[in-house]
Every structure is written in structure tokens, then in C-alpha cells.
């Protein structure tokens, strides 16, 4: 079967439309089908990155339609990362950060993005690296001890509570020493 539009190439796209009970068949070759808009090339190339950057653009507008409009309506962004030179506009376009400093630079605008990607979460609750985490591990440890202390006091287990209190003191001394060492 030949393409019914150009009558040159074999028809590869076959479409049957039924409108108000009336059947209409269309047989087109690849290029005619594209010209007539039966095959949307844009859609084929739509990737995760596009989706992500689309999400960033939705900022404040709340309309899903904007997802596909690109950045025409975008205001001029002067925000630029001092670490790698990435601008906010470039960040939203690529959907990727350029360096660790980007997180500080764009910090104020990150919460809505992270919420969307991580089911409403914006803060880390997982592993803390031993060195890069600094005294965070220690501070978290003290926090845990304090909770334990409260529990013990509530349960009137004062002997145990005294032990935990001493442990907290030791940990706090350690923390202060660390800080002293830094300055």
C-alpha cells in the first residue's frame, strides 16, 4: 500500500479514526505522518532530565501545563554559584548541580524541588561520614543519651540515670575539646 498523501513511498502508519460512528482510515508514509503531526517527535526525546527541569520550572506557578513550555517566561536569574560558576538558570535547565557549593548557593530554592523528588523530605536522616561529618556524630550521640536520660528519670531509675548523665558529661567534654582544637 502506498502513502495516500504523497503517493511515492509505502505507507507505514495506519490510523483508523471513528468519529460519530463514521469510520475513517488514513495510510501514510513516515515523513508524511510526521508532517501531519501523527507522530510527535518531541515526545520521543522526552527524558528524565526534561521531566526534572520541568519540575523546577513549575516553581510557584502550580500549573502542570508549564512543564512543557520551557523557560520563555522565566525571569532573568542573576544567582550564580561561586564554586563552579553554574547559574540558577543553567541548574534548572540541566537538572544537575555543578559542585558542592551549589547546594549553598541555591539553598533557598531547594526545598520545593527536593520535596517533589523525595516525597516531601528535605533533610538527611541517614549515615554521617566519620571525617566529613565533623562532630555531628558526637552531637547526635549526645542527643540520644539525653533522650535516654529523660526516659530513665521518668521511670525513676535514678542509679542508671546518673551513669548516663556522667556519660553525657564525658561526651560533652570531648565535643568541647574538638572545638578547642579547631580554633
Amino acid at each position: 500500500m502506498q502513502c495516500q498523501r504523497c503517493e511515492k513511498y509505502p505507507a507505514t502508519v495506519h490510523l483508523t479514526q471513528v468519529i460519530n460512528g463514521e469510520k475513517n482510515e488514513v495510510h501514510l508514509c513516515d515523513s508524511c505522518a510526521k508532517e501531519q503531526g501523527y507522530m510527535n517527535q518531541e515526545e520521543e526525546k522526552f527524558s528524565l532530565n526534561d521531566l526534572l527541569s520541568g519540575l523546577f520550572h513549575m516553581e510557584g506557578s502550580g500549573s502542570a501545563g508549564k512543564l512543557f513550555q520551557g523557560n520563555k517566561q522565566q525571569q532573568k536569574e542573576s544567582l550564580q554559584c561561586s564554586g563552579c560558576g553554574l547559574t540558577y538558570q543553567e541548574f534548572t535547565k540541566a537538572g544537575k548541580f555543578g559542585c558542592a557549593t551549589c547546594y549553598e548557593t541555591f539553598n533557598e530554592r531547594l526545598d520545593p524541588i527536593l520535596k517533589r523528588v523525595h516525597s516531601g523530605n528535605t533533610t538527611h536522616h541517614g549515615k554521617v561520614p566519620k571525617r566529613a561529618g565533623g562532630d555531628l556524630n558526637l552531637r547526635k550521640d549526645i542527643e540520644k543519651h539525653r533522650e535516654k536520660l529523660h526516659q530513665l528519670i521518668n521511670q525513676e531509675e535514678f542509679e542508671e540515670a546518673a551513669k548516663v548523665r556522667d556519660e553525657i558529661r564525658t561526651l560533652e567534654e570531648e565535643l568541647n575539646q574538638d572545638k578547642g582544637g579547631d580554633s
Binding site: 526534572l52 537538572g95 544537575k96 548541580f97 555543578g98 558542592a100 547546594y103 531547594l110 541517614g126
Partner: peptide, 11 residues
């Protein structure tokens, strides 16, 4: 980063 955790290229 304390708040964001391990920083990666992709959010």
C-alpha cells in the same frame, strides 16, 4: 552537608 547529607550531582 549536615542538612542535605551526601551531596550529589543530581537532586
Amino acid at each position: 552537608d549536615e542538612e542535605r547529607g551526601y551531596l550529589t550531582a543530581c537532586p
